[in-house]
Design a protein around this nucleic acid. Structure first.
Length: 334
DNA sequence: AACTGTACCAACCGCAGACTG
DNA sequence: GCAGTCTGCGGTTGGTACAGT
């Protein structure tokens, strides 16, 4: 038995909305609200549209106070930072940007922001390769491209590193509380203390964005700081770790990733060996060299490149991988 | 002027989870 | 507890505008 269609596809109009349709929909919702039933709404108004289509049109275009285009640097920073932290949870990201819709942010990311960032990275790559060609003492390993890591995984690692105090236009965001997004006023309060955490049987790490990452039993939540009860996002770790489930453990690759100024700890939950190398130092000159290309990632496991993510800043007690600039790190199963 | 490639964005689609009877 | 329905989300597609050849 198949899933019932949300509407009679033969009798619904598709494609761009006409001004008349917009007026009908807007007028009705302004007067009566959605009535809690999008499916029935188009019939009430006399629109030959699918309820889902009406909902989308309202949320992305007709709703009051919608902003289109013209993203500011601050908004760029927020989007980037949240993308690094939680991945493509556009609705959560949109919630932090008043007037912006998830669709808008998603489009902006895919068409502009990502290219903007990766474009800078390529520029840096070229500079690095020129510099490398002048150095004879670099091991051949360092010149390999990270073929084994998917583009998306690399992309996020790169973006993450950019945020790790590599002087980028965005790195200042992490160091400047004034640029952190304004969440619910309560979120601006002091993070929960370790004592409180232990009472709750949870582990928590504080995120500069005002969102706490809470480990509680088998769940990970992006929770509001004040109570840790109302999750912005949550995911079941046990389920995540079960290979029979479709999605991978979050956080970085399929492992947890922790970065501080110069070290990167990779917490591998699977117990398999991984070898990472970092070839270049992160050069910080004139505030422009904010990404260095030679991050060598030799992955010996078959983990997915899924960047699902809630918390690249969390820790586990599983195996630990140390990564240092210029260093070669190896994984030690615990 | 005609064609082609690219960028952008509105809208669609399918899925998963929540809700309801 | 279960099946059907609804809602929300994220990925993808298709149309349009514009730039380059």
């Amino acid at each position: 038995m198949g899933r019932a269609p949300c509407c009679d596809k033969a009798n619904v109009k598709k494609g761009p909305w006409s001004p008349e349709e917009d007026v009908k929909l807007k007028d009705y919702i302004d007067k009566y609200g959605t009535g809690g039933n999008w499916i029935a709404l188009p019939q009430k108004i006399g629109l030959k549209r699918c309820g889902k289509s009406c909902r989308l049109r309202w949320l992305n275009y007709l709703r009051p106070n919608i902003k289109h285009g013209g993203f500011s640097e601050e908004e760029d920073s927020i989007i980037l930072s949240l993308y690094i932290s939680i991945g493509s949870r556009w609705s959560i990201i949109a919630a932090q940007l008043p007037g912006r819709t998830d669709n808008d942010i998603k489009n902006y990311w895919n068409t502009k922001l990502k290219k903007k960032l990766l474009g800078r990275q390529k520029q840096m790559n070229r500079q690095d390769s020129i510099a490398d060609s002048n150095e004879n003492n670099i091991s051949s390993n360092n010149n390999k491209s990270p073929q084994n890591l998917s583009n998306s995984a690399l992309e996020r690692l790169q973006l993450h590193m950019q945020l790790q105090n590599l002087q980028s236009p965005f790195s200042s965001f992490y160091n400047n509380p004034m640029l952190w997004p304004k969440l619910h006023p309560l979120l601006q309060s002091t993070p929960t203390t370790p004592d409180q955490n232990s009472k709750l049987g949870s582990q928590e790490s504080f995120h500069p964005l005002g969102v706490n990452v809470v480990h509680q039993n088998n769940n990970i939540k992006l929770a509001e700081i004040n109570d840790g009860v109302s999750p912005l996002y949550s995911e079941n770790v046990e389920q995540s770790l079960n290979p029979t489930h479709g999605f991978q453990p979050n956080f970085g690759f399929s492992q947890d990733l922790q970065l501080d100024d110069h070290n990167m700890d990779l917490m591998n939950r699977g117990g398999s060996k991984e070898l990472f190398q970092v070839g270049n130092e992160f050069e910080l000159t004139n505030g422009s060299n904010w990404w260095s290309e030679e991050v060598e990632l030799e992955r010996k496991t078959t983990s997915s490149s899924s960047w699902g993510s809630a918390s690249v800043l969390d820790q586990t007690t599983d195996g630990v991988v140390m990564l240092q600039d210029y260093g070669q790190m190896s994984y030690h199963s615990v």
